[in-house]
Nucleic acid binder design. Sequence first.
DNA 1: CTGAAAGCGCTAACAA
DNA 2: TTGTTAGCGCTTTCAG
Lengths: 339, 339
Amino acid sequence: MAVKKPTIKDVARLAGVSFKSVSRVVNNEAWVSDEVRTKVQAVIEQLNYQPNRTARLMRTAPFSLAFVYDNPNSHYVIEMQNGILTECREKGFELVIHPTDSASDQVRHELTSMIGTNLVGGVILTPPLSESTTLVQQLLEQQAKVVRIVSGAEPPDELCPTIYVDDEAAGQAITEHLLDQGHRHIAFLGYHKDHKSSLGRYRGYCAALHHAGFAVEDELVISGHFTFDSGVQMTEQLLQQSNKVTALFGCNDEIAAGALYAARKRQLAVPEDLSIVGFENSPFSRQTWPGLTTVHQPNAEIAARAAAMLISLMLEPEQTPKHCGFKLQLVLRDSVSPI
Amino acid sequence: MAVKKPTIKDVARLAGVSFKSVSRVVNNEAWVSDEVRTKVQAVIEQLNYQPNRTARLMRTAPFSLAFVYDNPNSHYVIEMQNGILTECREKGFELVIHPTDSASDQVRHELTSMIGTNLVGGVILTPPLSESTTLVQQLLEQQAKVVRIVSGAEPPDELCPTIYVDDEAAGQAITEHLLDQGHRHIAFLGYHKDHKSSLGRYRGYCAALHHAGFAVEDELVISGHFTFDSGVQMTEQLLQQSNKVTALFGCNDEIAAGALYAARKRQLAVPEDLSIVGFENSPFSRQTWPGLTTVHQPNAEIAARAAAMLISLMLEPEQTPKHCGFKLQLVLRDSVSPI
DNA sequence: CTGAAAGCGCTAACAA
DNA sequence: TTGTTAGCGCTTTCAG
């Protein structure tokens, strides 16, 4: 039979105190006598009383945040999600998941509704959503707390606390690694003009070539998406239009895995005939054969940081957390050989 | 400056009606004159009024559910999550994510707290959590709505609506496929006595062998986990202790991918020297080289179904949704060759 | 230190 | 068809 859940009043009655005292104990407020505290705690235990979050939320700011993403990459999403959850757990926050289609205009509406209806008190934005200043402003106007994760060597502006990841420096580093191994004709796969991470990595690629005194060869820069299938297709296109390429920089590990697949289909040995590098260090970059040389992108850590910033923003609004930048490290595996 | 959010009363005042009328319009209740409805809607528009979910939740059942999992497999989690979200969107529900460690005793506490504090009205349980009848009962006692996903040819009991997935039949089918190709010494990788899916697949494997008149060879059955690393390790162990094996059934795609990796490390060609099959049809099973023959497990669909059942359970408690079984289909790719 | 009263924004019950 | 009155379970005054 449906037993009604005990409320704060039930506890108060049984403990012989006012329900306000119970509230004080539950919220660990000061100015409660040990006697009352002990008594109340005993009753709470006995009744297995659990405060109703909903009721509490009516008087306080929401204790939950939203993770907003538009990304086909499961590993990225899961790692981010896990990072955020770690932090949420610790602080007693709940996580609401909100995948979305950034192309659709609905996003704005969905997000403002999440905030407007008091579902969540803050949001963590990832690219490409995080790159829209108007979206951020709109959210901010609604009193939402916002933390965004973007690609860049520094925060784009001071709108809100920002996590920025230096794709350019890492893109340069991995390209230099290829140059160090003697490669002179290095392809770049996954160029996308509307994709800040892609652009950052591309800029790093160009910088490395220039510093080494080489020109960027247009026919070696292939546009595409951050997916395996796109990687396969771009590689096929590349190998058709150039036979001098000896190394290939996939803009992320999925592209690189696609390249590996396409190379193998063409009977090319990796790394003997073709060196391949990726970007992100997703779990499967070490599960391919050969393992992929790549750049480690600590997604879980980045996300945990974002969550920590957001939560602090919600809890202590007076002290704005500072921005936070991430530098990325090379991970050397077996998909590159000297020429 | 912080503008206070408009409440139902603000709307009522401006529209010149009682706030109850506004509530009626918002909730699409009957018995509202068109005149009032139009007027109220105009004001809602004008003020950009958004009802406060929290307040509403105090009078109604929670409009959110939890997805509880304990699984290292990103693809599985993401696919499930996406499936659930599809359904949630449609019905206006929110999703709270709750990864957990089923080994820890804390799970019980965490779950009962989610329910007890009114955070969510129901939960979707996946293995191995879903296999604990005591957990389910405990949740049920708290008035929680529960839907569980389990491995089996039929629901284990009538505690709650159940989605059951027939691992055994599929395990048998894929083993038969191997037998049809002439394989006689087929290894089974990923046996785990506490893991129902593993057990189901193992039973199917045994059944296929028996029907074909062969015995199960103990040395070809290797225990391990559903991970890539375990797959690598089990394959190495297998190849050391047996040289007659010609085909290998990985209990999931990760194990199979690990096997592929280990085989390649040993200079074994797949499928020429060794045929490999997996289970689940996760995205990367077609991204390996060669693509993995496997069993398609429609995770998103399964999850969407579970969510639909749970939501219906919450919305129309009188009509219990029926259980629902899934049969799995073979996916033939290039990792198997006849002998 | 403790408690009574008010009220968060909304929905349910009951009148009008 | 509409409005009034309660009251959800809790926190926040503010007065003891």
